[in-house]
Design a protein around this nucleic acid. Structure first.
Lengths: 111, 111
DNA sequence: AAAAAGCATGCCATATAAAGAGCGCGAAAT
DNA sequence: ATTTCGCGCTCTTTATATGGCATGCTTTTT
């Protein structure tokens, strides 16, 4: 009989659990769900939300950005969006700078 | 048209210059002055504001945080309190790159 | 069965934040 | 002397963010 961490690795959290966890009310969670694409909890046949660990994690990030860091919802959205593509963006910047460098060398040589 | 990092910097900027520089209206600048301790432009005998280079620099940082990054004023205040030096340095780099960019654009157009 | 609890959607109300607008005044410039 | 600019002040407006309610449907409890 293998050891299972059922409590810790819960599959799904209910709306009530989530509101208690973050000490907010349900309408705010639903509101955030509308505001942030990354929040997409599953729903059961009845329609009740089933928040995954991933959803909880995303909510933590969002609440941190908004409540601790002082981002607007808009700002938090953009932050999340650009952090997702962080690697891509870095590469893009590097490429851009490389092109810039060779251009500068050309300019210098033409003077 | 040589590229110069350093520009001849004015000692003081008037309210009109500042509002045009940031494309905002005066009440917002005055508002920010109340909201951010860091903003303390001098005033002449008449009471008109004399914005120093330092004030401009601080305004740039604030506008970047609020308009680009999506911070609330409250969030920007806290950010500045703990990251003022880093923010300054970042802004310095950004300014430098933007001057470089416009220089490059001029070069391109002159070809 | 009846009552209560939990959650759904949808709409409206509220609070605060952020920005803009109007005004009368005065100094300086044209 | 008229215009321009900016002052402080106050009032409004707009946007953001959150809360709350009405109603209805299941599930759980009494």
């Amino acid at each position: 009989m293998p050891y299972k961490e059922r409590e810790i690795n819960k599959l799904y959290y209910t709306m009530g659990e989530v509101t208690e966890m973050f000490d907010v009310n349900a309408s705010q969670i639903r509101f955030y769900e509308r505001e942030f694409d990354i929040l997409q909890p599953k729903k059961n046949k009845k329609g009740n939300r089933l928040f995954t660990q991933e959803d909880i994690s995303n909510l933590k990030i969002i609440f941190n950005l908004v409540k601790e860091k002082g981002y607007t919802l808009q700002g938090a959205r953009e932050f999340l969006r650009t952090n997702k593509n962080e690697a891509k963006e870095n590469q893009r910047v590097v490429d851009s700078l490389e092109r810039l460098k060779s251009f500068l060398l050309e300019v210098r040589d033409s003077l």
